[in-house]
């Protein structure tokens, strides 16, 4: 694996973005993002360390750090430690039952149209592979999963919906994901699960964690 150093840039006056250059999805890059996040989390001057697919945003306590000193801290961390050292080892496989299409998947027609496949073929393609949970976020319980088969790639809605129901399964470009709560959203919704993705009374509120593997089971 060739490891390029990421670009570090200011994000406003109290955060940095650390961006790896990658076209599409790369497991190796996502590993590097999570490894760097774990290393930065040992320093208490950072407030939020938020991982993306190919980038990481770190907000800092501006009474302790400046943009420049924060940049140096990240550079030091990157130089000091081999980035491929600890890929995520957590490998739970979680089955998610999904009702595809119909009222649960109002955008199924869009995917059929752009892919030239019928609904059954779209469902088979989407459920055929095991996905990796690359990041959690957007809202509590929302799981961002790895790449969908090429035929299913589809852009987001230009104007996001005001309410997408909890458990909805969506596609945005090459990404697929599960909505954890009723929320606004711009993804193409193709199905819904009745699993409760986020429950504050559970010991671990989120049903799934970054690093898990997900298998969709059509109902």
């Amino acid at each position: 694996m060739t490891q390029t150093l990421p670009r570090i840039s200011a994000y406003g006056d109290h955060a940095l973005q650390i961006q790896y250059d990658v076209d599409g999805f790369s497991t190796a890059i996502n590993d590097a993002v999570h490894t760097l996040a774990a290393q930065l989390k040992t320093d208490e001057n950072w407030i939020d360390i938020i991982t993306g697919y190919d980038s990481l945003v770190a907000t800092f306590n501006s009474t302790a750090l400046t943009i420049d000193s924060a940049k140096r801290k990240v550079e030091d961390t990157l130089i000091r430690t081999p980035q491929s050292a600890s890929p995520q080892t957590q490998n739970r496989l979680i089955d998610i039952p999904v009702t595809y299409g119909g009222a649960c998947g109002p955008d199924m027609g869009n995917i059929c149209q752009s892919s030239g496949l019928n609904e059954q073929a779209v469902i088979e393609k989407h459920a055929a592979q095991i996905y990796r949970v690359c990041m959690m976020g957007f809202l509590p319980g929302f799981a961002f999963l790895s790449e969908v088969p090429k035929a299913l790639h589809h852009p987001r809605h230009a104007n996001p919906r005001a309410v997408v129901p909890a458990g909805s399964i969506g596609i945005a470009n090459w990404q697929t994901g599960i909505y954890g709560l009723d929320s606004p959203g711009g993804w193409q919704i193709i199905g819904r699960t009745d699993q409760v993705m986020f429950d504050k009374t559970r010991k671990t509120p989120s049903l799934i964690q970054a690093g898990d593997r997900i298998r969709f089971i059509p109902q």
Partner: peptide, 18 residues
């Protein structure tokens, strides 16, 4: 080019395609 979902913080101004 479409944007890959990325971290967001309070006070960010986002520009959707519309």
């Amino acid at each position: 080019q479409p944007m890959v979902s990325a971290p967001l913080i309070p006070g960010s101004l986002q520009i959707p395609p519309h």
